[in-house]
Structures are given as structure tokens and as C-alpha cells.
Design a protein around this nucleic acid. Structure first.
Lengths: 357, 357
DNA sequence: TCTGAATGTGAAACGGGTTTCATTATGGCT
DNA sequence: AGCCATAATGAAACCCGTTTCACATTCAGA
């Protein structure tokens, strides 16, 4: 059976569709009894206006595209849940666009990710979304992908685009990010205050903006404290638990080993925790570990992770609010920065051999 | 600047819009040179067909609504990622509909969840989605919510609806689920084979179908082995890490305590692990723990969790495939069941005091 | 009583595609 | 040479709302 339309309602109410539309949207006064007759019919037939038709003329859909690299990475659900909260409140629905591929064996493949980003960008345009938010992937590259830059600028001419936790230097795209350098400084300063001098860093991808900024934070904190940075204690390229375990195992098996490890995310920190455990090294007594992101899992581990909170939910919320303003044509700052917080839990302690104050 | 339409292309190519549409969709033969002329113009202007307009006539949108209770619960991203994989392959995009509320303090509120489900249902209808998949929430209630049942049956008349890992007894709604009872039997039999006789169960919600089924599996496995079930060792109402910790702590502090705990999900198991650690009880030497779901975090803990894999990704994939068939009007089985697998890792061992074979 | 403003309503155009139907040109085959 | 199937294309209707414009009423104020 065909869904009921404004025409059906109009016919049965003996009015024109214009009038039906008017009561539907409250856009013009309608005589009380006429209105009631129409409303009654709408209820009777459970009339639901076709959003496609409506959007076609109104030129707004209330739909947003959210492009992210991998929903199974717990950082993104956090951001997304903040975004969801505000977006829903503001009357938007959103397409989730995951750019990772998995093969039949459920292994994650990052190789075609960039291609996917482009595909989604044009798909979303066709779907006439009101706005697009992008996080991760090529947005995170320090050396901006010229292809993506060109593409995004093209897209941004037609529909508001917001970049989260990343940037595309040389382009004028709006973005909201956590201050990565500051976050890293927070973490490293904390370790230094605990007496650590031998601090290693693991994880991240050297090509990513975020990683570079955090590394910069690390370096600046070390420099401020007059501490040397040892190249062989900076192990990048990776963001997963296994990688964390691998790098930490490597560090811990060397003759000289660090007393603290700063991890580029919590997953790595969890891996480091496992490596320490396997090596029989106690955390935090013999080794301090600090993570980054403050995903929920940071409190699941034993001991619980000391970490830097990016306030992921807050980023998501801010994204929704900002995008809404952009859609409404209001002015928004080109760049919004959120200050991370250090969350001290159980994986950090005074450096071994130094008495507490 | 106004986006370019088929009319613009048609005018400049000196053809009618019908012809443009034909090359766009390859629905009828078009003379080679005409086609080339049109294609060239499409490239020149970067023509992107308006999906709204297209969907309006075609009466299909390629959009699906995915309703779930809480994206930050790691089980759902797993399912979703499987769903994403297949849905994308089949040419669908989907709206993510999270029904949980969070207040400004980021606390999760479950109270208005049911209301949200209903709101999303009608929103999705208005958006003209081709299909809807629902997981968790009221779908999971053993005593079906008559309101939801009525509503869903109404919706299902218009658009295919698929229920994941749940059911709505008395309704004829398609569903795909993991066999919860079987999964629980797997877990409990494993413990029994290791010599455990004193087995406790924690977590779940007594009103939920899944919980009841798993409990049934637990009971049947115990009965088959001729073991008694102690009421005070079944602690339900909860699915989180803190709850797991709380319940396990309670069990472990009693005079007589179980030698094994079967947890209704991995989050609870992680909590139990923490409780054991705090109580100074070694896992698995003194206490065996088995989880449920096999979320990625199950391998992050120390020791790694023995758990039951629901093959969450597989459920998501199957959902996408099935929904696609339903949309295409093909016949699909009313109920599809996936068999869970036991994943033995490090949290289970022979019961203390009994030598290995 | 007259007038300008506000109320109430319908006809028709519009948004941007798809699809049906009709028409003409073309090619293969007897 | 004649005929039918197929290719190639356009005009117009359609999908389902919104919006503009025009027109008729009603009402308050002078």
C-alpha cells in the first residue's frame, strides 16, 4: 500500500496541498477548524511527510556525514558519542563513514583507506548532506596530501567541512583539535616531577601531525628540564596494543632501559603494561607508564592507566555545535583548540631509587 | 553558485534530460558520440546527481538505519564494523542511531532510551530508509514491550526490519542472533572439564532475553554434569566493569567462595579480574574467569581473557546481507542463528587442589 | 463607511531527477 | 523493395513536498 501523502490529506479535507503544508510547518495562519480537520486526518492515517521531497525544495536535509578511520578503535566511539549527543539535540542525523577495510578474515587493512575517504566525500555530496566532519586518515598527515587538499577545498565550497584533531596546512578549512603539544608536555612534565630522567616514547606515526606535535611537546618538556633526548628511545609507527607490547619489550630488554615510557595512546600503554608484566617488571614501582587519549579501557587495566585526557567527548560535542553554526551561515573561528588534562591514576610513581619527598 | 543539474548538461549538449539520465544510468542505448559529449560535460562541470531527487522517484534510497543502545560499549563497534563492511559492499550508507543519552557530565542515562528508539523509528521512516536494523534496548527484553511490538510491526509493514541478538516474541520479525544458550554451555562445560564444581555467574539483566538464555545454558550444563546451582552465586543486573568488580568482590569475600566465575560479558570479566587482584587472589591459579563476547579488550588484560566469541563481526555482516535480500524482496529465513565459539586464553585453569591429568 | 492590514486559501511553479510513451532513424533479412 | 526489430531521442508526466503569487474575506481604526 502506498504511503499517504499531502495530496491524500488535502483531498479528504477538501483543501489544497498548500494548506496542508501550512499546518504541517506552521508557516502561515490556518483557520482553526480547518487545521483541526487536517490534523485529525494526519493522525488517522499516521501521515509521515517524505523527508526526501521536503529536502529537495528546502535545500537542507538535516543530515551530516561523519568520516572516521576505524570505529573499533575505542577513541572514535568516544568522540562520536559526544558528537551524537549534540547533533541529535540540534536535529541532525548522520551517516557513519568508516574508511577502513577489513578482509574476510576480519583483519584491518589501511591500504585503501585514502581511496575510501574520497569515495565518501563524493557520496555524501550526492546525498546532499548539510555538513561533513572528518577525523583521522589523511587529515592527520603532517605533509598534506595535495589530492585530498584539492578535493576538500572543492567540497568545502559547497558544504561546510570540519576537521577534527588534524589539519590540512595551507588550506582554509575549519577545525577543532585538542592541543596535542600541550597534552604531551603535561604527561612528560608529570614524569619529570616524579624524578624520571630516562623517558622513552613509543607509538604514533612519524608522518602524522598529531604524532609530530606530541613529540614536540615531549622534546620541549625534556629541554625545559635540561634532560637529553635519546633517539633510540623514540619508537614510532604504530598505535595498537601489540605494537605497544613489541616496542616496550624492545626497550625493556636493552642493557640500559628507561624508567618511564610515554605512550602515544592508551592502546600502546596497555601493550607496554603487558610487556612489563611478561618481563617481570613491576608497574609503577619499577617502571612508570603514561598513556594518551583516556579511553574507557584506561581504567580497565591493572594497574589503571595514568593518561592524558583529550576530552574526546567534548571534541565531538564542539564539532557538532560548530558545524551547526557553519551550516546556519554563522561565523566560527577557523581553529578551536581544547586543552587536554592529565589524569593521574596508578601507572606512574616516583622513579626507583629516589625517596619520596 | 548553484550546483549543475541534468538540465544544465542537457542544454549544453543539445539533448533532452531523458538522454542525460540514460547515460547516467545506462538504462538505454545512446549514440556513442552523444554519450561522449555528455560524459565530457559531466566531467567538465563535475556533475553529481542529486540523490534526493533520484530517490524520490526510484523509491529507494540506499540508506539504512542502524539503531543501537551505546556505541561506546565495545561490543557494538565490533558488530557495526562487520555490518559496515558488507553494507558498503552492497552499496548502502547508514544512519547511526544511538539511543543512549548522556548528560552534560558525560554520564550515560538509560532512562529515555526506549523513547529514543521510537523517535528514531519514525525519523528513519520519514527519511525513507530502505531498511532498519535494531540491536539491544527493548529488543532485548524477555517480556516484549507491547508498545514497541506494535510499533515495530507497523514499521515492518513499510520497510524491512531486522533484529539482532534479540527477539520480540509473538511478532513475526526477522532476526539474526548468536545462540546464547549454546555459548553459555560452551563456557560452563569448559570450566567443568577443568574440574570446577563451584561456579558462580555474574552480570546480565534478568529481564533480558539474552541473559535468560545464557542462564539457561549455564543451568543445563550444570545439570548435565550433576552439579548443583547455588542461588547466591548468581548475581545479575549489570554489564559494566565496575559492576563486575563489585559482584566478584562480593563473591570472593564470602566464607565459601566459588573457584570459577562465568561472566555475562567481557567487561564484567575485566571487573572480576580487578576484584581478584585487589583481593590478592591469583587468576587463573586460584580462580578461573570466563567472559562473553570476545571484544578486542579481552586480549588487553593480564592475563588475557578466556571468553565466548559471539562472532560479533559476523553477526553484523550477516545482518547486512540479510537486510539486503529483504530489501530486494527475496525470501530470507525468519530466524538465523550463529554458533558461538569458545576462545581459551589465560584466565582459566584446572581447579586448585586437583592435579592435572 | 472607507481603507489598509491581517487572515485564510488555492493554483501553479518549483526542486532535480526517472520513466513512460511516442516518434523517427537505422540496420538486417527475405 | 518491403518489413520488422532495434537504436536513438524528446516531450511530458511523475515523485512529494514547499513556496510564491494572487485573490477573497475579515477586521480594526479613522
Amino acid at each position: 500500500m502506498r504511503p499517504v501523502t499531502v495530496y491524500d490529506i488535502a483531498r479528504e479535507a477538501n483543501v489544497s496541498v498548500a494548506t496542508v503544508s501550512r499546518v504541517l510547518n506552521n508557516t502561515a495562519p490556518v483557520k482553526k477548524e480547518t487545521r483541526e480537520r487536517i490534523v485529525a486526518l494526519m493522525h488517522k492515517y499516521q501521515f509521515q511527510p517524505n523527508a526526501l521531497a521536503r529536502s529537495l525544495t528546502r535545500k537542507e536535509t538535516g543530515m551530516i556525514g561523519f568520516i572516521l578511520p576505524d570505529i573499533t578503535n575505542p577513541f572514535f566511539p568516544e568522540v562520536l558519542s559526544g558528537f551524537d549527543y549534540e547533533a541529535r539535540r540540534l536535529g541532525y542525523t548522520y551517516f557513519l563513514c568508516d574508511t577502513i577495510s577489513t578482509n574476510e578474515e576480519n583483519e584491518r587493512l589501511y591500504d585503501r583507506q585514502y581511496e575510501r575517504e574520497s569515495q565518501y566525500l563524493s557520496l555524501l555530496m550526492e546525498k546532499q548532506v548539510d555538513g561533513i566532519v572528518m577525523i583521522g586518515g589523511r587529515v592527520d598527515l603532517a605533509k598534506p596530501d595535495p589530492e585530498l587538499a584539492r578535493e576538500l577545498e572543492e567540497v568545502a565550497k559547497r558544504v561546510p567541512v570540519l576537521l577534527l584533531n588534524g589539519s590540512l596546512p595551507k588550506t582554509k578549512l575549519n577545525r577543532v583539535s585538542a592541543d596535542q603539544k600541550f597534552g604531551a608536555e603535561l604527561a612528560v612534565q608529570h614524569l619529570i616531577e616524579l624524578g624520571h630522567r630516562d623517558i622513552a616514547v613509543i607509538g604514533g606515526y612519524s608522518k602524522m601531525t598529531n604524532t609530530q606535535q606530541r613529540l614536540a611537546g615531549f622534546r620541549s618538556a625534556m629541554k625545559d628540564a635540561g634532560l637529553p633526548v635519546r633517539k633510540e628511545w623514540i619508537l614510532t609507527e604504530g598505535f595498537s596494543v601489540p605494537k605497544g607490547q613489541e616496542y616496550a619489550a624492545q626497550l625493556l630488554s636493552a642493557k640500559r632501559r628507561p624508567t618511564a615510557i610515554f605512550c602515544m595512546n592508551d592502546l600502546l600503554a596497555i601493550g607496554a603494561l603487558k610487556a612489563a608484566h611478561r618481563a617481570g617488571i613491576r608497574v609503577p614501582e619499577e617502571l612508570s607508564i603514561v598513556g594518551y587519549d583516556d579511553i574507557p579501557q584506561a581504567t580497565y587495566s591493572i594497574p589503571e592507566l595514568t593518561t592524558v585526557s583529550l576530552m574526546s567527548q567534548e571534541i565531538g560535542r564542539q564539532a557538532a555545535r560548530t558545524l551547526d553554526k557553519m551550516i546556519a551561515g554563522k561565523k566560527v573561528p577557523l581553529f578551536q583548540s581544547l586543552m587536554p588534562e592529565l589524569i593521574v591514576r596508578e601507572t606512574t610513581a616516583r622513579v626507583p631509587g629516589i625517596a619520596a619527598d
